[in-house]
Write a protein that binds this DNA or RNA. Structure first.
Lengths: 198, 198
DNA sequence: ATAGTTATGGATTGATCGGTTCAAAACTTG
DNA sequence: CAAGTTTTGAACCGATCAATCCATAACTAT
């Protein structure tokens, strides 16, 4: 009954997400978003309430793709728990190697947003907290499985190990953004795994 | 032969540093810097070439105080190597607990800057890289000592362990900014130390 | 005192910010 | 085809951005 959209909303979201990922929230202008999505201002503001709303959607979109893929690896029943965590680290290393701009890794949008916005943007913080809780829940389950299948022998409680693994991933991403190469990231992952078989 | 400064440059630098630490580079306006330092625009631009120059000075000032204090702990000859690393982690945890705003940890200015600027600001990246190199050098030395005094038994090479420890600190800071409390950070530190005595 | 120099506060710059408005274009439905 | 609805692009909004300018105040050296 009316003129249809000439663009795919998800494609626009994906382009906006990549821009926020590369430049951060503050450094991304609405003009940048227009150019990245190929849309005009009106189309963007007609589809999304504001720059911040678009950012929230982009962040949720990022989490929906990235975290979901990572948790799928963690829940793969074909491998023992420790190997799934190893696979998760490999995924992170691949991601850091793959997603770059200006010769540097882009890191991870959730980590970047935690640093840039969590302290003063409660809406973004809430999205991030939900993601962290979800990740930790799956990690705890994997650790319990690892205890049963014998691949994880550390006596630390599952909560501590889950937090440790999540922190290690963050540390790898920071290292990557700081210039660490693939081999370095792989060695960090190896040492991290040592702690699980203590 | 002329009118002297009415303000202490180092105090101004400290105030500017705290502002950049709390809000990040992009979100800090020159107005914010005037208010934080108590100086007028002219005084700031007369003393520092630009907002970016002031930021570089503030970052260097942060590194000069923070990293230097941390490396002093790592070089304390009264304790065995592993205990020095434990003390370093305790220092990080204390710092995260101490420096907060809006109910959240401020994290670490070097980590925050790595995330926000390293990819598109080569000058900031160079400052950060120098700091990382310095930290890694000291960490490698501590690990070598730990091998000798028996407090570090991991067979991984010193470079890998140094990178791992540095990454772990970054991961703890991200966790803290993501809302992790003191107890959680302490448990992450404990598990991290496990990897050194593998 | 006075000449010389710098620091300072306030006004001001052009550019860019996020966001709105509006008329014309484009499409669906009857 | 025509009525009705939404999308779209461009012009435009006040606010704020980093940075500069300038007149005056404040100080030192002679």
């Amino acid at each position: 009954m009316a003129r249809p959209r000439m663009f795919d909303e998800e494609r626009a979201l994906d382009a906006a997400m990549r821009t926020f990922w590369e430049k951060g929230y503050e450094a991304t202008s609405t003009q940048d978003l227009c150019e990245a999505t190929g849309l005009g201002r009106s189309s963007i503001y007609n589809t999304f309430k504001s720059k911040h709303d678009l950012f929230e959607r982009a962040l949720a979109y990022y989490i929906d793709t990235m975290t979901t893929a990572q948790l799928a690896v963690l829940e793969d029943p074909r491998h023992r728990a420790a190997d799934r965590i190893r696979a998760l680290f490999a995924m992170v290393v691949d991601g850091e190697t793959e997603h770059r701009a200006g010769g540097r890794s882009l890191g991870c949008l959730t980590v970047n947003t935690t640093v840039e916005l969590a302290a003063r943007d409660s809406r973004a913080a809430a999205i991030l907290e939900r993601d962290t809780a979800r990740r930790l829940t799956v990690l705890r389950a994997v650790i319990d499985e690892g205890r049963r299948d014998g691949s994880i022998t550390s006596q630390r409680d599952a909560e501590a190990l889950a937090r440790f693994i999540n922190a290690a991933i963050g540390g790898m991403r920071i290292s990557s953004q700081g210039g660490a190469d693939r081999t370095t990231l792989e060695s960090i992952a190896e040492v991290t795994l040592d702690a699980l078989t203590h």
